[in-house]
Design a protein around this nucleic acid. Structure first.
Length: 593
RNA sequence: GGAGGUGUAGCGAAGUGGUUGAACGCGCCGGCCUGUCACGCCGGAGAUCGCGGGUUCAAAUCCCGUCGCCUCCGCCA
């Protein structure tokens, strides 16, 4: 009768039983976490989604159940009838949530047997990630993974409740849609019915949510799957989830307020409090002081510009770079004078990853200057540098001289790396900030044209459209990112709600009339029929869960993630398909080795 | 496309040319055990050392190639 529940009706979940349930008759169901067989008495930890509880089988209580318990092995699925009782004195386990009580097992039913699992179903095992992904259904049995999945559910539920309370409609948008020319590489889906034509999976529901504003839906949100065919990282998967929001008749500040209130509810799940108002920082300030547009504000070590001090120095590397539109900036590592030469060499290797050509350094050790470059500077210059860098005895100053973007990125990344290694980051701190006033465009050398830094539907911050005929580098966008502890949680913008302006933006990005029509004709059409001012934001759900769950891999917060090569060890996707399928899709494969 | 790391029983992991018939821990199998909860005790099974070449009297160990996984650069409006 394997697998039949006859006579057994689950009454309680294992982890929810407590002292007040003593003397109750209960029926629990779950997996055998552990069998401890003492010959005369057998202990079974039974685990379900809620946690686990110890069941005792004693031959003097129920001989038959005891005998059956002898057959149990790890991960067998069982149903147990019994009664809750207090554990005998001296046998209380304070470590466990259910450690004061136990189930006296009276009837046992084996619902399914299990092979020995490839790894133990425990939190403190460390199987290779490939194995975990291949047997993901077992990996998810581990409490640590189960709790992340539950956390993710709670966050989504909080979001839906909050958005509903705030007057938003949850509206689904197509997954089979049109390839967009800007942005990431699209995942394409061939059309059987339309030979040679392709759908694309959405990189985001961007245009649909704007069209919904034109539709008069006023407030839209969606827990939206997004797809980007780019290389993977520890925090990047080809398919990921955004909390996607769009509102009409609002300003940037309305979106800030709404987002902050939503985040306040979400972060409360982990007892993390948001400030009354999240501070705002300009993009320029973030780059100047932190080098990155997602500054980690939990520690100081700001970037300092010494270009003016070294501009006319004898150190040609510095002075030449400054005189050729470059700059020299540095960070001061408190107590960094303990760094060895080879450790500094490693730091130099690190900044070189970001195209810096070198890492200059000045150390103040035992009140003496130690530095390979000090000989090029007068004492006065050195003192000015020390003053600017706010360095003290025992500190280490590190400098990069290069074009401003390279200086910013390399020092910005170095700052974060050093803070981590020197343990400067208070793990209990949560520093939120809005970043505003991004550039509207950035110049792409490879393409020889300007592209939108956020996306091409972002409204510029300008008084006059004619400014778009001037210096494009200077134009700011009405866009914003929300940053937490150096991670970008999300970003959005006020959108263009005017056809002429939208057209002008496409123009300056070098789109031809024909391209505009082909790629965005439907948007341009829609903008002619009465478009409300609107804007929105998208929050990265996966990254938010990573922070809340305190894990450093996005794969840990997705039930069935993919490997770095975008494959699934579980399903073996992607895979080859039959010739017949390809024929129907009008697809010929070119030779691939 | 590139750089680095890694791959040894089911899992974790030691071993960098020959006393290693490849350690150790967990798990697994058998036996004993009435209060364990990292149960304990006794016994046992289990390894193409990722794969393919090569060097050598001798390779897990050195060399070349290749594959998987991880981290990073590029890429990610």
């Amino acid at each position: 009768m394997l697998g039949k529940l006859d006579g057994f009706n689950r009454t309680h979940h294992c982890g929810e039983l407590e002292i007040s349930d003593i003397n109750k008759d209960v029926t629990i169901m779950g997996w055998v976490q552990k069998r401890r067989d003492h010959g005369g008495v057998i202990f079974i930890d039974v685990r379900d989604r809620s946690g686990f509880i110890q069941v005792v089988f004693n031959p003097h209580i129920e001989k038959e159940a005891f005998n059956k318990a002898d057959q149990l092995r790890s991960e067998y699925v069982i149903a147990v009838k019994g009664s809750i009782r207090k554990r005998p004195k001296g046998n209380i386990n304070q470590e466990l949530a259910t450690g004061k009580i136990e189930v006296e097992g009276k009837q046992l039913k084996i619902l399914d047997k299990a092979n020995t699992t490839p790894f133990l179903i425990e939190d403190d095992v460390n199987p290779g990630e490939n194995l975990r992904l291949k047997y993901r259904y077992l990996d998810l049995r581990r409490p640590i993974m189960r709790e992340i999945i539950k956390l993710r559910h709670r966050v989504v539920k909080i979001t839906r409740d909050f958005m509903d309370d705030s007057g938003f409609l949850e509206i689904e948008t197509p997954l089979l849609t049109k390839s967009t020319p800007e942005g990431a590489r699209d995942y394409l889906v061939p059309s059987r019915i339309n030979a040679g034509h392709f759908y694309a999976l959405p990189q985001s529901p961007q245009l649909f949510k704007q069209l919904l504003m034109v539709s008069g839906m006023e407030r839209y949100f969606q827990i939206a799957k997004c797809f980007r065919d780019e290389d993977l990282r520890a925090n990047r998967q080809p398919e990921f989830t955004q909390i996607d929001i769009e509102m009409s008749f609002i300003t940037r500040e309305n979106i800030f307020e709404l987002t902050e209130n939503l985040l306040r509810d979400i972060f409360a799940t982990k007892n993390i409090e948001l400030p009354k108002k999240i501070p705002v920082m300009t993009y320029q300030k973030a780059i100047d002081q932190y080098g990155l547009d997602k500054p980690d504000l939990r520690f100081d070590m700001k970037l300092k510009n010494i270009s003016d001090i070294v501009k006319d120095s004898q150190f040609k590397i510095f002075s030449n770079i400054v005189q050729n539109d470059g700059q020299v900036k540095g960070i001061t590592v408190k107590a960094g004078a303990k760094f060895s030469r080879s450790e500094i060499d490693d730091l130099e290797k690190y900044v070189k990853l970001y195209e810096a050509k070198g890492l200059a350094w000045i150390m103040i050790k035992d009140d003496k200057i130690k530095s390979p470059i000090a000989k090029f500077f007068t004492e006065e210059t050195i003192n000015k540098i020390i003053e600017r860098m706010e360095a003290k005895n025992g500190d280490l100053m590190l400098f990069v001289a290069d074009q401003p973007d390279i200086v910013a990125t390399s020092l910005g990344k170095l700052r974060v790396k050093l803070a981590g290694e020197l343990d400067l980051i208070d793990k209990n701190k949560y520093e939120f900030t809005w970043i505003i006033d991004f550039p509207l465009f950035e110049y792409k050398k490879e393409e020889g044209r300007y592209v939108a830094k956020h996306h091409p539907f972002t409204a510029p911050l300008l008084d006059d459209v004619d400014e778009l005929d001037n210096d494009l580098d200077k134009i700011k966008a009405n866009s914003y990112d929300i940053v937490l502890n150096g991670e970008e949680l999300g970003g959005g913008s006020i959108r263009i709600s005017n056809k002429e302006l939208q057209h002008k933006i496409f123009d300056v990005m070098n789109f031809t009339e024909e391209e505009i029509e082909n790629k965005f004709g439907f948007l341009m059409d829609a903008l002619q029929y009465g478009t409300p001012p609107h804007g929105g934001i998208a929050l990265g759900l996966d990254r938010m869960i990573m922070i809340l769950a305190n894990t450093d891999s996005i794969r840990n917060v997705i039930a069935f993630p993919k490997t770095q090569k975008a494959t699934s060890p579980l399903t073996k996707a992607p895979s080859k398909v039959d010739k017949k399928q390809l024929d129907e899709l009008h697809i010929d494969l070119v030779d691939i080795d």
